[in-house]
């Protein structure tokens, strides 16, 4: 349905997006996973026709939209990372405006406003000014504004940044409902691995402007089929011990996080004995050890040597 072909964007000497080729099939939910600065937002800006690529193409149903973007703009909507609303207006007034710019009028406009308010759970507070809403509620109106013209493709640019867990769950549940029940095609970008795992059928992983891996969640985790993740929690931080453990033979990647250490090791490698021995030698107290099945976070770690939120 929607494809990009070697999409590239250069800003002077910086290549923000480098030969990105991705595709979205009708009705599927695709994740674009990557750390901050990976080029996700720039890629989205080009896909949504907001920004012109330096090279490459964006195609809708096989036709390029770079010169004639009308078809794309009629069916696609972007929920921006920022709260792109008029805060001095009420939720209702905001939705009325965003409906109008998509040509809705009269009863259809009124009906759609009430539908999207119901969808995001703000029907009873629709007359309140947006500036008086909590961050989570503003995010929900941000999504509602995008839903006003019932788009076929919904692109979400890190929609859960900076909101409370309750609003986050509500938002994710709404997106899932739109995708599963209404067949809306979703491109979801985030640097929260668990959100992408929860919502998306397929995932593209981006880093430094490039797609470094893609596939279904299972296919991606298959990258680590010969490996497993060992997570060790200590009573406090032991920088020297953590450095030493990372150098043990057989350990492929090691990442520290305050009091804990995550290690990717070959499946069946016998390293636990050495780990305990070293910990005892440094006088460190181990609180928890967990051998985990790989997550997308581990895949990213394996591919880049860094954590998603580094």
């Amino acid at each position: 349905m929607l494809d990009t072909d070697k999409l590239t964007k250069k800003f002077k000497d910086t290549v923000a997006v480098d030969n990105v080729t991705i595709s979205l099939r009708q009705g599927e939910s695709v994740g674009l996973l990557g750390p901050n600065g990976a080029g996700k937002s720039t890629a989205i800006a080009m896909i949504s026709t907001l920004m012109k690529p330096t090279s490459g193409d964006v195609r809708l149903h096989g036709k390029s939209v770079l010169k004639n973007n009308g078809a794309m703009r009629a069916i696609l909507v972007v929920v921006p990372q920022k709260i792109a609303l008029y805060e001095e207006l009420s939720a209702y007034e905001n939705l009325k405006f965003f409906g109008r710019i998509y040509g809705l009028t009269g009863k259809k406009l009124e009906g759609q406003i009430q539908y999207v308010l119901e969808l995001v759970g703000l029907s009873d507070r629709q007359k309140e000014l947006v500036k008086n809403y909590s961050g989570g509620m503003q995010r929900r109106v941000n999504l509602a504004a995008a839903m006003m013209h019932e788009p076929e493709v919904l692109i979400m640019d890190e929609p859960t940044v900076g909101i409370d867990p309750q609003s986050r769950n509500h938002l994710l549940e709404t997106i899932r409902k739109l995708n599963r029940e209404q067949g809306m095609t979703v491109l979801y970008t985030s640097h929260y691995m668990e959100e992408v795992e929860k919502l998306c059928d397929r995932v593209y992983i981006m880093d430094h402007g490039k797609v470094i891996a893609s596939g279904t969640k299972e296919e991606l985790k298959g990258i680590l089929s010969e490996e497993e993740t060992v997570w060790i929690e200590f009573d406090k931080s032991y920088p020297k011990l953590f450095e030493k453990l990372g150098q043990i033979e057989g350990i492929q990647h090691a990442v520290t996080d305050e009091h804990s250490l995550k290690l990717i090791i070959p499946k069946g490698a016998r390293v636990l004995g050495t780990l305990f021995h070293e910990a005892e030698r440094y006088g460190a107290q181990i609180i928890n050890v967990n051998v985990q099945t790989p997550t997308l976070e581990d895949v990213f770690l394996r591919l880049t040597g860094r954590k998603l939120r580094d």
């Binding site: 949504s48 907001l50 909507v77 972007v78 920022k82 008029y86 965003f98 710019i101 998509y102």
Partner: peptide, 13 residues
């Protein structure tokens, strides 16, 4: 600055 301009740009307006 707030992004509402971009929202309008990618609409049919």
């Amino acid at each position: 600055r707030t992004g509402t301009w971009s929202r309008m740009i990618i609409s049919p307006v």
